[in-house]
């Protein structure tokens, strides 16, 4: 064996996304006043818990070989079920349980349409997205938010609770319990995908469905599980979101749909073989959170923020595609 020498090109190629994230972080640290303070960083992190939950769900479906457009509807559904139950006087624990159950059922409906009826993933989730959002509008009589007069117990703590709260010399350091929850779930998801038979089989089913089936993989069961996981994670996102807002705002999930697709695909560029993965997805979420936070601090107009964000996604993907080609040639 030859001794491995450090290859700069290879290093850059393997770490494009991480390096870009660092570059953005540095840029904001230098130019955005107040960005590099513990208080601000923790705020930015804590605000990303809902996007992280939804991105985890999206990640499962992307690994299974599709894209889940209905995450937006599942997010709304979770918030709606939970808030309506609490309004009706049910205990918060039971309300959250019902919201998660609704997510599971939502995922089952998606997978039934895809696997048994045979509609493509794209069209199925597009359909359930429209239906889900319409139901949100119907239930709320045209989209009027439902405000809760009080939140308590588990429902309050899931969105608003904090695990760390230090106020010191003007600095305000808070880490929300929702962030901790999302990170714990991310860790579990990463473990399941990397270290269990299900995870390996899910990747196989997503890459070449029939080949996986012929190898004895219960591909349909894997895909179903991915959609159920997505439905539940998004509904949990909805619960967290409405807890944070102390209300349920209908058809609010669209905001997360494109972001979650973005985070998963940015994350997949961090994988050697371009597979969607949890570590990358978490990085993608951080990328978006810091972007939003930093651009807000710089006072960039809301609409321009989306232009910059879209541009940066394209830059990451372009660098990745370019280097993929270069390396394909070099290692041929």
């Amino acid at each position: 064996m030859k001794k491995k020498s450090f290859d700069m090109g290879r290093f850059l190629y393997d770490n494009t996304t991480t390096l870009l994230l660092l570059a953005i972080f540095l840029f904001f640290s230098v130019f955005a006043r107040g960005f590099l303070t513990i208080g601000n960083i923790t705020t930015a992190l804590s605000s990303s818990s809902v996007l992280l939950l939804i991105s985890l769900g999206m990640c499962f479906v992307v690994i299974s070989g599709g894209t889940d457009l209905s995450v937006a509807a599942a997010y709304g559904l979770g918030g709606m079920v939970c808030v309506l139950c609490i309004q009706a006087g049910l205990s918060p624990v039971f309300a959250i349980f019902l919201a998660l159950a609704a997510g599971a059922v939502f995922g089952l409906i998606n997978s039934f349409l895809i696997l048994k009826v045979g509609i493509s993933v794209w069209l199925t989730t597009l359909g359930t997205l429209f239906i889900g959002e319409s139901i949100e509008r119907i239930v709320t009589k045209g989209g009027t938010p439902i405000y809760l007069s009080r939140v308590s117990g588990l429902f309050e703590s899931i969105g608003q609770g904090t695990v760390v709260n230090i106020k010191q010399q003007g600095a305000n350091i808070t880490i929300k319990s929702s962030l901790l929850l999302a990170l714990v779930l991310a860790a579990i998801a990463a473990f399941v995908l990397k270290k269990t038979v299900f995870g390996r089989h899910l990747y196989a089913a997503g890459l070449q469905r029939r080949a996986a089936e012929l190898a004895g993989v219960s591909a349909k069961r894997c895909v179903t599980a991915a959609f159920v996981a997505s439905g539940m994670l998004c509904c949990l996102g909805g619960v967290v979101g409405s807890s944070q807002l102390v209300s349920y705002i209908p058809v609010n999930g669209r905001y997360y749909l494109l972001d979650s697709i973005g985070t998963v695909f940015i994350g997949s560029t961090m994988h050697k073989r371009g597979f969607a993965n949890i570590g990358g997805t978490v990085t993608g979420v951080l990328f978006f959170s810091f972007m939003t936070n930093g651009l807000n601090l710089l006072g960039v107009q809301y609409y321009w923020q989306y232009v910059i964000r879209g541009g940066l996604i394209l830059v990451v993907l372009a660098i990745n595609a370019y280097q993929r080609n270069v390396w394909a040639l070099r290692t041929k």
Partner: peptide, 17 residues
């Protein structure tokens, strides 16, 4: 198309079953 899953590693393919 149906045998080895192309973008999985040799190891992952061998132990798939």
């Amino acid at each position: 198309g149906l045998g080895a899953i192309q973008s999985m590693t040799v190891k992952e393919n061998i132990t798939l079953a």
